[in-house]
């Protein structure tokens, strides 16, 4: 007699199931076990609650702090002038998005809010991977802009058509099949 009733799920299996990363063949094992094992049901529920709490907390942490709002009323005119000037600028900033080298993590690239940006993207090491497009997303993962690549350059230049406000962004390189190959962090201040 063979069935999966006798072995509880590992933490990794529960995590993969919570994220929907289990293969169609293996998911049957997991779900059959969850039908009968209350311990694993409790553990899965705890895992999902943990993930949900993390996401709420992480998204909240990425929102701008609003404690300055009362002061902003008095400084509104100054802020309006201060904001208008950068957005009226036609200055183009070059930003290097570098991948890590020799195991040393490359720091996040930085840029100035409201400036036109020309991104130089480091695709060295991906020559055989057919990098097909670049995409920039904001801190919540919402895509903002995208560009196709011809796959000939290991350091393509991408001039963004839109100006970015302050915040954290991710520039991602994908192959023609849609698989993400590399990611760069961009802090706009």
């Amino acid at each position: 007699m063979t069935n999966n009733y006798s072995h509880c799920l590992t933490d990794t299996q529960l995590e993969d199931y919570a994220f929907g990363r289990v293969s169609p063949e293996a998911v049957a094992d997991v779900e059959e076990h969850l039908l009968v094992c209350s311990d694993c049901q409790d553990r899965l529920q705890a895992e999902e609650e943990y993930i949900a709490a993390f996401r709420v907390a992480a998204r909240t942490a990425q929102r701008p702090v609003q404690w300055y709002k009362p002061l902003a009323a008095a400084a509104c005119l100054v802020m309006a002038v201060g904001l208008w000037l950068p957005f009226s600028s036609t200055k183009v900033d070059s930003v290097d998005l570098r991948a890590e080298r020799g195991g040393v993590l490359a720091p996040a690239a930085t840029a100035v809010a409201g400036h036109k940006l020309e991104l130089r993207v480091d695709l060295a090491g991906l020559e055989s991977r057919n990098t097909a497009r670049l995409q920039i997303v904001n801190a919540t993962g919402a895509p903002l802009a995208e560009t196709r690549l011809d796959g000939t350059s290991v350091a393509p230049m991408w001039t963004l058509n839109r100006k970015l406000g302050a915040g954290t962004y991710w520039v991602r390189a994908y192959d023609s099949g849609g698989k993400q190959l590399r990611e760069f962090k961009l802090d706009v201040e």
Partner: peptide, 21 residues
């Protein structure tokens, strides 16, 4: 139904520690 024989071999240490049914 699943390939339960394969899955039955996996995570044995953790399963034992977790007090599996």
């Amino acid at each position: 139904s699943s390939n339960s024989e394969q899955n039955g071999k996996l995570g044995a240490d953790e399963a034992a520690a977790a007090g599996s049914p």
